[in-house]
Write a protein that binds this DNA or RNA. Structure first.
Length: 419
RNA sequence: GUGGCUGUAGUUCAAUUGGCAGAGCACAUGAUUGUGGUUCAUGUUGUCGUGGGUUCGAGCCCCAUCAGCCACCCCA
């Protein structure tokens, strides 16, 4: 309780009683990505601050207020990464991955950092998973990326979530739409909430998902993004929907979806779990057709998504999806008497060499305490070694579930345990 | 950055009006001299988040501070 040091605000330790759950979710993600032939990419957790400032948009809160920025000993300005897409694109450009044939399909996992006020499902250091497919504007790829996410979430066993999609058009379309929104809302400016009044100048699309009732009322008849799409944008969107149907991904169109970062174009999507509270997106993403060029590469289109492991974990716990993937030892060694305890390591090493997981607690000496410990760690077998057994050159193998026990020679042990 | 609620044993939480800091669970030992889960008995565990103030006396009241939770905001 009163330890000398405390962890930083908004961070957490992943303790042994939950770490196996993390490992499980990460493995399901990696396996799903591989099923879609995405390859893992690992980038540093800090980058030049400018990379994020330029790509995410200087007006976004992520860059203007929430970046962990620091200067190193030579005066270079770095930032702990607040998101994963810009670094992957940076690496793509820097390493000339576009020289390879075909679309680059990449996935990543790792910690991200944002100086936010912590709340449910939101931390200052949080762990994201994400994918990026760079090099194609084909609507099939949009659908494939969404299908990957859908497959991942289904593999975890989740059912309480919804998929919402939208198109935010290209830069030209977005500009026209923002203008239309500004014109629509400006006459009502006095009636809008304080936050929305500043949104009106900064990011008019954010007005659409304001939670204040009067703002929602005013926005009821606001222009809809989808009506502003040009021919190319809307046919792309229609194609994406067709492929989603083929992939059997259930979705609904939500024209109010807004992406937080500036680089998004065309397809935008969110996976939502409404039981999570205010931070209800378990993942979201979209197309970013201008980003590669902006970061210094060729003019190549891309699309990806990212999500937080914390919210998946919360969702899975709400649906009670963790049972039986905790790591437990197969065997617990019970050694009675000094003679047996003195040579216990021999038999432990024999078993471990056969890939059998073994636990032994040298602090517990009485038979009873050791049996209790064996039960507590849920070991399948106890191997009891006492004076009797030593004299006869055997050990007692006890099945802790059916309580049956047999005397066996050490040589027979591993075969019996594995059977 | 803003607001509300909350910090007491390993953990979950009590403590009446300001008057000896408690209970369940967990843990340990025993009942049973070499056999676990149930039961019974006994026992251990405290910087009352931290620092200051008021008071004869503070877990309780006041101020500050740190942290947690939830929401705003933002966003995955």
């Amino acid at each position: 309780m009163s330890s000398k040091y405390n962890l930083p605000r908004g961070t957490y330790d992943i303790l042994p009683d939950v770490s196996y759950k993390w490992e499980y979710i990460i493995n399901v993600f990696k396996n799903t990505a591989k099923l879609f032939n995405f390859k893992e990419i690992v980038t540093p957790i800090f980058e030049e601050a400018d990379l994020f400032e330029r790509s995410s948009g200087e007006t976004s809160d992520i860059v203007s207020k929430e970046m962990y920025k620091f200067t190193d000993k030579k005066g270079r300005v770095f930032a702990l990464r607040p998101e994963g897409t810009a670094p992957v694109v940076r690496s793509f450009v820097e390493n000339n991955l576009n020289a390879q044939t075909g679309i680059q399909k990449l996935f990543y996992t790792g910690p991200m950092f944002r100086y936010d006020r912590p709340q449910k499902g939101r931390y200052r250091q949080f762990y994201q998973y994400g994918v990026e497919a760079i090099g194609s504007n084909h609507p099939f790829v949009d659908a494939e990326v969404i299908a990957l996410f859908y497959t991942f979430v289904k593999k975890l066993g989740l059912t309480d979530f919804e998929v919402e999609i939208n198109s935010v058009g290209n830069a030209r379309v977005a500009e026209r739409y923002d203008q239309a929104l500004t014109e629509y809302f400006r006459p009502h400016k006095e009636s809008l909430c304080y936050d929305c009044q500043t949104r009106l100048d900064k990011k008019p699309r954010r007005l659409l998902d304001c939670k204040v009732k009067t703002c929602q009322e005013i926005g009821k008849d606001a222009p809809v993004m989808l009506d502003y799409l040009d021919e190319e944008c809307s046919s792309h969107f229609e194609q994406v929907k067709k492929y989603l149907d083929q992939f059997q991904v259930p979705y609904s169109v939500n024209p109010k979806i807004v992406r937080g970062l500036d680089y998004y174009t065309h397809t935008a999507f969110e996976f939502l779990n409404h039981k999570l509270g205010a931070q209800n997106a378990i993942g979201a993403g979209g197309r970013y057709n201008g980003l590669v060029e902006q970061i210094g590469g060729k003019s190549l289109p891309g699309i990806g998504f990212a999500g937080g492991f914390e919210r998946l974990l919360l969702s899975m716990e709400l649906e009670n999806l963790f049972s039986g993937n905790e790591v437990i030892p197969q065997v617990f060694i019970v050694a009675i008497g000094e003679k047996a305890q003195a040579q216990v390591a021999k038999i432990i090493s024999l078993l471990r060499n056969e890939d059998i997981s073994v636990e032994y607690d040298p602090e517990k000496t009485s038979l009873k305490a050791q049996m209790k410990a064996a039960d507590k760690v849920q070991a399948r077998y106890a191997i009891i070694m006492g004076e009797d057994e030593l004299e006869r050159g055997v050990v007692t193998l006890k099945n802790l579930q059916d309580r049956k026990q047999v005397d066996v020679s050490p040589a027979e042990l591993s075969a019996l345990i594995k059977s």
